[in-house]
Design a protein around this nucleic acid. Structure first.
Lengths: 186, 186
DNA sequence: ATATAATATATGCATAGTTATATATTTAAC
DNA sequence: GTTAAATATATAACTATGCATATATTATAT
């Protein structure tokens, strides 16, 4: 499980609340690891129990209190240990590919619609990478002086770009096959 | 969740035991959806409760009994319904990309070792696709006359090929960046 | 002879992840 | 004035997944 370590990583940049961590996820880690808000809160509790993070409750006039989490020295050590451990090979889980695999039993027109939906998703992701994420990385690198970090962020962005491009191309190839099928039998 | 439907799909080709389904998984679905043996047995029980599959216990002299599962008409209907429903967009979960993202805090040499391991994995997968899976699809298509199905199986194989090729190329690009980093600072 | 791998079916426990819900405030839109 | 959205922190219930383990037989290798 990478979630506690992803949170340790984000907190290593600066202390944050659970809500802020969710927002940070959405702009970065989200593209290769996701977590819901309840999951983040529960994981933060576990991390606190293990001494990886410490909490400061900031009381504010009128407003509800903010629980600000920061990494402890034990947490930094755990992050370094985890970074040095060999990463597990991810087990891909892709419902669309399952549907394509048994595609002969589906209506070719419906399958084609699925593929078009997928293509649109990855084409949109590709646009988002260029227009939103790439400038965001540059922005953070300049703003916080994290130029060294930005090089690594860009590597994961590049993976996303290549994956999305590959997915779009594959959809086009698959669509050609499926539509041929539709003409012959549908 | 795609597991019950993946099992319905496999059973739609021919009746099988839980053990045989696990073996079938390993040769096909495994590359885009995985399941452990306990998970398969439990899911088959749930599917039986829902009336999607029926069981025949084959008592064998001396040997332990085989529970052979076959799809019911309700199961076939459920499979068709699921195939027609739009597929969820998969949430990617990749621990290596998390490690790369926070790579600045790791030893460049260790990170390079991770990337080399990953590259070797995907290069091996690529070889396996060519030498094992592609001939297997051809074999099944000829043996069982499932030529129409084979066209769809090949589409998922093609996705695997493109993904693995992309992953190998990205590793090379990432390695170049990380090793540059190692020279400059390590 | 002995050990190991493959066949075959599970249960129990722990971890992980999702959905629904509860609460409370502030800000912006209509 | 009212509604909706965003900020902020959770808990409960459920679903899904993974790992360890138990049992028993047959075939193969050493």
């Amino acid at each position: 499980m990478s979630l506690p370590h992803a949170l340790l990583g984000l907190l290593s940049y600066r202390p944050a609340t659970g809500y802020e961590l969710k927002a940070a996820f959405e702009q970065s880690i989200h593209f290769f690891w996701n977590a819901t808000l309840p999951q983040i809160y529960r994981t933060l509790n576990q991390m606190r129990e293990r001494g990886w993070v410490a909490v400061t409750v900031e009381h504010q006039e009128g407003r509800p209190s903010r629980k600000v989490y920061r990494v402890t020295e034990a947490g930094r050590e755990e992050l370094r240990r985890w970074l040095a451990a060999p990463p597990e090979i991810p087990q891909p889980r892709d419902p669309l590919l399952v549907k394509v695999f048994f595609g002969r039993q589906a209506d070719p027109a419906v399958l084609a619609a699925h593929l078009k939906m997928w293509r649109a998703h990855y084409a949109g992701l590709l646009r988002r990478y260029e227009e939103e994420i790439a400038p965001l990385i540059h922005h953070y690198a300049v703003l916080t002086g994290a130029r060294e970090d930005a090089r690594y962020w860009s590597l994961t962005l590049e993976f996303g770009r290549r994956f999305a491009r590959m997915a779009v191309d594959w959809c086009d190839a698959a669509l050609a096959v499926v539509m041929q099928e539709g003409k012959a039998h549908g």
